[in-house]
Amino acid sequence: MKRLTFLFFFVLVLALAVGMPASAQSPNPTPSDDEVNAIARDMYCPVCENTPLDVCPTQACIQWRELIRLKLSEGWTEAQIKQYFVDQYGARVLSAPPAQGFSVLIYIVPPIVLALGVFIVLRAFRSMHKPLESSARETPPATTPDNDYLRRVEEELQKRD
């Protein structure tokens, strides 16, 4: 969710940048650590898997961050920089796969399964409503006498509480 909003923010910034081309074109002489980290936090370096690039202390990751700084100072946008890294090192540098090609599956399977789950639950609701009546007809005490007794005990206990 955090990144989603971040993305939203980023699009906003991009929109602003498009609106004001003059200011967007002027390259920043030395981008700050914060500007670098804002991009790096959404990336993963293959050398230290599962550690985001902005906090990874290895030499490789330090170099990657400096490269981001270099590209920023050359006036590259975040999208351009990420694309550069994807071209260089593969899609695994992104913190979530791009929704294209085979990776689309990662985004569409969970909603499908959820929909299936809702369907199954709804069906279960209905089947618990209806067919049981028929089964109850066939085997009238669906519960064993033993269970019936337990239920009575339970009711007793409930009353007492």
Binding site: M1, K2, R3, D42, Y44, A91, V93, S95, A96, S103
Partner: peptide
């Protein structure tokens, strides 16, 4: 998914916090 993706496409992918959080 990364396991399947690597088997099918041969390329590794990272499934990180943005996916899970969203």
């Amino acid at each position: 998914f990364p396991l399947i993706s690597e088997l099918v496409t041969g390329a590794k992918v990272t499934v990180g916090p943005p996916f899970y959080e969203r």
